[in-house]
């Protein structure tokens, strides 16, 4: 047991060696040693917490949609806007390396949208989302759907201040995605198995895919949907309503 706080860790494993910002000069070695013990992601984490407080203060539900390229995130958003937009004010951040193609699609679907281009960057970070919010200006009570860059690697590390991470996993990808990209699937609060209308045409074993997901994430909700045909989408909307209510409770707490 950790002697510092009584948690199950061990002080020697470094999980909470004193993590603070002020340096400690020590005289040993040829040059002075300055202990830092700062998390490498500290700056992004701080910006994400700032976003989280900003969302909570405005009673806004923010979710972070991640997937491999082409899993159907934008199509999912288009259908969600069409079906749910009248009931829930939906605002969208579109993250891509380049172009405003997706933002144009979302705009046509009828939701306010801001396109964030990451340039050579492979993920959205919390500061980009903060800047996006200044342009998007979602009102109190809105739901902000953040479509991350299509990439199952880098976005796993960068907290945006969202309430939940949604992994969109399509049946054209192969059942082993969760064990090939465990970081991303581990971080998911919910996994949407998309393109189920294609199941008769592809060799995709749903049970095996879900078992693989369970080996890296025991708690994520899963919903099988087709954003194209609308199958299963009602359960996804129910999940969003539930999260919306949870955000409202957190805001009033």
């Amino acid at each position: 047991m950790c002697a510092t706080c009584g948690c199950s860790g061990d002080a020697a494993t470094g999980h909470h060696r004193h993590e603070h910002n002020h340096p400690h000069p020590h005289g040993h070695g040829p040059g002075a040693l300055v202990e830092i013990e700062a998390r490498i992601l500290a700056k992004n984490d701080a910006a994400a917490e700032h976003n989280r407080a900003w969302f909570r203060g405005r009673d806004i539900l923010a979710v972070n949609l991640v997937s491999a390229p082409g899993a159907g995130k934008t199509t999912l958003l288009e259908r969600t806007i069409a079906d749910l937009g009248a009931e829930m004010p939906l605002y969208v951040i579109e993250g891509d390396q380049a172009s405003a193609v997706d933002a144009a699609r979302i705009e046509r679907a009828g939701a306010p949208v801001v396109q964030v281009n990451t340039g050579t960057g492979c993920h959205l970070d919390a500061a980009m989302v903060a800047r996006g919010m200044q342009r998007l200006r979602p009102p109190t009570g809105a739901a902000v759907l953040i479509e991350n860059v299509g990439n199952l690697v880098c976005p796993a590390l960068f907290d945006l201040g969202e309430q939940a991470k949604i992994v969109v996993f399509s049946v054209t990808e192969g059942e082993d995605k969760p064990i090939k990209y465990p970081h991303m699937f581990r971080a998911a609060g919910i996994v949407l198995l998309n393109k189920i209308d294609l199941l008769p045409h592809v060799d995709f074993d749903v049970a095996r895919a879900l078992a693989n997901l369970r080996s890296v994430n025991r708690t994520a909700d899963t919903i099988e949907v087709s954003a194209r045909t609308g199958a299963g989408m009602a359960a996804w909307y129910e999940w969003l309503r539930h999260e919306r209510a949870a955000a409202r409770q957190a805001a009033s707490a």
Binding site: S8, G9, D10, T13, G14, H15, P25, H26, G27, G29, P30, G31, A32, L33, V34, E35, I36, E37, A38, R39, I40, L41
Partner: peptide, 19 residues
């Protein structure tokens, strides 16, 4: 419970000159 292996820390720097 993960005990080790997820660390992402800047532990320390050593200055060129003694303090």
């Amino acid at each position: 419970t993960r005990l080790r292996g997820e660390e992402l820390l800047i532990r320390s720097i050593e200055l060129t000159e003694a303090a």
